[in-house]
């Protein structure tokens, strides 16, 4: 990936991320977050994680952020009430963020293992096509042999062969989530007589 594209998308991610915090209007915040997530998705794709990148856009930008917007609109929250933000909280938040960023920078300073480029750790479809686990799934092997990265297929293989148990657990979690949403947002039925 060319450097300037990385910087562009990083700037989009962080810049709009910053705007989420700065914007007075919740709608602006939500839309900024959506854009920030698109930038993030681009970064995922630049890391050859196509499937994750797409999911990020589909789930986060497409569903989660829309849900946020929907709720903001539904509740008709215009902007934060007039009173100024708590100064202590602002200072605390800024200090926390700066310290954390500096700490990350410091850690990265000694994290020599991280000073590698994608080229130095290039993926090799040819080597991959000879893997044992890949050999069992013909379509993946074919794609790899053809020199393309079948990211979604590999993802599927991993999920269903290694993480089948977790997938079901997640299913249970989604069920609980659904039940929870129903429980928490149903209204008192108007026709019901008051006892």
């Amino acid at each position: 990936m060319p450097s300037f594209l990385f910087y562009l998308f990083a700037a989009i991610t962080l810049g709009f991320g910053l705007n989420v915090i700065l914007a007075r209007n919740p709608v602006t915040s939500a839309l900024s977050l959506a854009v920030s997530f698109v930038g993030l998705a681009a970064l995922f794709i630049s890391l050859d994680a196509y499937f994750i990148g797409i999911i990020q856009i589909l789930v986060y930008t497409g569903a989660v952020m829309v849900l946020f917007l929907f709720i903001i609109m539904l509740l008709d929250i215009q902007k934060e009430e007039a009173k100024r933000a708590n100064t202590a909280a602002v200072i605390g938040g800024v200090v926390l963020a700066v310290v954390l960023t500096l700490q990350v920078a410091a850690v990265l300073g000694v994290f020599k293992e991280g000073a590698v480029t994608t080229e130095q750790r290039a993926l090799s479809m040819e080597v991959a096509s000879k893997r044992e686990d890949v050999a069992q799934v013909k379509t993946i092997q074919k794609d790899l042999a053809a020199g393309t990265l079948p990211d979604a297929k590999l993802m599927g293989m991993t999920l269903f062969e290694q993480y089948g148990f977790h997938l079901q657990a997640i299913g249970l979690l989604l069920l609980v989530g659904t039940v929870g949403v129903v429980v928490l947002s149903k209204r008192e039925s108007p026709g019901k007589p008051v006892v």
Binding site: T13, L14, G17, L18, V20, I21, S36, L40, A85, A89, V90, G92, G93, V94, L96, A97, V98, L100, T101, V104
Partner: peptide, 12 residues
Amino acid sequence: ALFALGLAGVVV
């Protein structure tokens, strides 16, 4: 940096 931004937002 994004993590730190999020954290700052939570606090602020």
